[in-house]
Nucleic acid binder design. Structure first.
Lengths: 139, 139
DNA sequence: ATCATCTAGGTGCAAGATGCACTTAGATGA
DNA sequence: TCATCTAAGTGCATCTTGCACCTAGATGAT
């Protein structure tokens, strides 16, 4: 029954949870704990609980490059004792500040989210209180 | 100093807070309270606390159209007693279910967000506990 | 030796989401 | 008649993302 044809808003179906660029602060936090490379960071991301919708490696590598272009991390090639060479990223001081602004930003997101839940539950209470009396006219 | 040139990930600057399609559940909730039209919904959105980054009207109208294409709302033209005609939207039963799934989805988002804060504060505690001793090698 | 597999880091492309500027058009009052 | 408010859009450029695919060193099995 969905029969979603076009290519506008919502065309890809589902109601996918997504905080835009949420991977970015996660990577910054991991790098705050110490330098690392893309592949390793990718594996450590599951610490943040998005088991469904696991991150795509291409996204990770692109975010790391973007962080470097903006001066939030630096990178160097490093030969490991096994496997191919790795590009090892290190958080800069600017990157550290950037992480701080991300945290404040996410706290704001959290507040907004809770104002939604508040509105939702407030409304649902009223809605349920009216059940059995004014049930007509809805649904 | 930012000097962000290209057009890759993060090229637009800032660390914009954004929950993808967060407007959608807000509109659904407003419509759950009763039928309404785009312009009115736009004005009622500030109830959800995103005073900065207020919603763009084009986005609202596009979301409403998309909701209709997916069968979550229906619309009718209505002549008001003043001003131009309005397209009045009504939540369907399917839209009601969709709102429920959105709420569960946002609760998951909330959990992920808090697992980030948890990691952050846990890490920062250790980091600060080491201050003055192992302060070298970082920054 | 050569083949599959794991590690590591990418690129290309299409689709989706979004902000900004702009348009249309009825109603209202100066 | 002209500006303004209400209402609903469209067009375009840009950003973001998922998927498929590619390169290439290292390692172990046959």
């Amino acid at each position: 029954m969905p029969r979603r044809g076009g290519r506008g808003y919502g065309a890809q179906g589902g109601c996918r949870r997504r905080i835009g660029r949420f991977l970015e602060p996660c990577l910054l936090l991991l790098l705050h704990a110490g330098e690392s490379h893309g592949y390793e960071l990718l594996e450590n991301l599951d610490r943040f609980g998005f088991s469904k919708n696991p991150a795509d490696s291409s996204t990770i590598y692109r975010i790391l490059r973007s962080l470097e272009e903006r001066g939030f991390v630096t990178s160097m090639w490093a030969e490991g004792d096994s496997g191919p060479a790795r590009r090892v990223y290190t958080l800069t001081e600017r990157g550290n500040f950037y992480l701080e602004t991300w945290v404040m930003d996410l706290e704001e997101t959290d507040r907004i989210l809770h104002s939604f839940f508040h509105e939702y539950h407030k409304h649902m209470e009223v809605h349920h209180a009216n059940d059995g009396e004014t049930d007509k006219g809805k649904e």
